[in-house]
Write a protein that binds this DNA or RNA. Structure first.
Length: 292
DNA sequence: ACAGGCTCCTGCAGGC
DNA sequence: TGCCTGCAGGAGCCTG
């Protein structure tokens, strides 16, 4: 499932491929979901706009859109190498949440259309940006910035949060540290894989009460989380549940997993079999010896 | 206010 | 071999 490293990888890949391209046509599948904004409204907002930049906020992919009147797509593309690029400021956003099984792919128009393709954006360059999501937990939203404010995540960004702020997130909270890590209102972007992996590297049991962790444990957790996420981004994310990046390429971080989906297998550190419990409704994996 | 549980949706694994 | 059941999970919503 896409979490921060997978979403980051996809956002970077899409950015590299379609930045400066203009949306000439938007097609949306007829399903009632996964649309947070009505499909017709999304299509109307997207068509004619230029993809200025694509970036990640938490688990969301944010496409910054601009209405650049009077410029040809060639002129826009030439602007790509100049710094700063001579684009007008964004006046709209297209926000993509991949849910569990969502994919955002840059393809040629003649590429076979996968089952459960819910959106196809035809670009001036001739390519297509497609949103595919079999399980339909993903969400698509269009925001016109003159009407509403730009997208912001409710939780803190785990890659940049500092020690004091991190510790403050969990102070006085009785819920398990695993559930706290999954709460997007506290930290944004952490899902089941990286919650389990970072708790393993920090040597903390998932069931421990978040508010009762020591300052030292919280700092170990913050650093572990940071390292695990950065490492996963370098490897292009974890490919479980068919995850692929913008070009359809799988990631490699699943090969580095120490606990996630390794139930019964020996701990990479002490050989104790990895245990699996249900916590906050999620499969939770840990080493009973290394994690206290 | 906050924590925990239920729900959506489909593909896949496992059992008979 | 084939069918069918059950399970997985992000996040919004509901309940206690």
């Amino acid at each position: 499932m896409p979490e921060l490293p997978e979403v980051e990888t996809i956002a970077r890949g899409v950015h590299e491929r379609v930045r400066g391209d203009r949306i000439v046509h938007a097609w949306f599948g007829g399903h009632r979901e996964p649309f947070k904004t009505a499909p017709a409204k999304q299509a109307k907002g997207l068509e004619g706009r230029v993809l200025l930049a694509i970036h990640r906020t938490g688990k969301h992919i944010v496409c910054e859109l601009g209405s650049v009147a009077g410029k040809s797509i060639q002129e826009l593309r030439q602007g790509r190498k100049k710094t700063p690029p001579e684009f007008a400021p964004p006046d709209a956003q297209w926000i993509v949440h991949l849910g569990m099984t969502g994919r955002l792919l840059v393809t040629t128009p003649d590429a076979p259309v996968a089952a459960h393709t819910h959106a196809r954006l035809t670009l001036a360059s001739g390519r297509e940006l497609r949103f595919v999501d079999p399980r339909r937990f993903g969400r698509l939203e269009f925001r016109a910035l003159e009407r509403v404010t730009g997208f912001t995540a409710s939780g803190a960004e785990p890659l940049t949060i500092q020690a004091g702020e991190f510790a403050a997130l969990f102070r006085g909270r009785s819920l398990s540290i695993k559930a706290a890590l999954l709460n997007q209102n506290l930290l944004t972007g952490v899902g089941n894989i990286y919650a389990d992996e970072s708790l393993f590297h920090a040597g903390i049991r998932p069931r421990r009460s978040a508010g009762r962790l020591t300052r030292a444990e919280l700092e170990r957790l913050r650093l572990s989380l940071n390292q695990v996420l950065e490492h996963a981004i370098r490897l292009g994310g974890s490919s479980v549940s068919d995850y692929v990046d913008a070009a359809g390429v799988r990631g490699f971080f699943q090969l580095e997993h120490c606990v996630y989906l390794r139930t019964g297998e020996p701990c990479r550190s002490c050989q104790t079999p990895i245990q699996r419990i249900l916590l906050a409704g999620r499969g939770t994996h840990f080493c009973p010896k290394c994690q206290r």
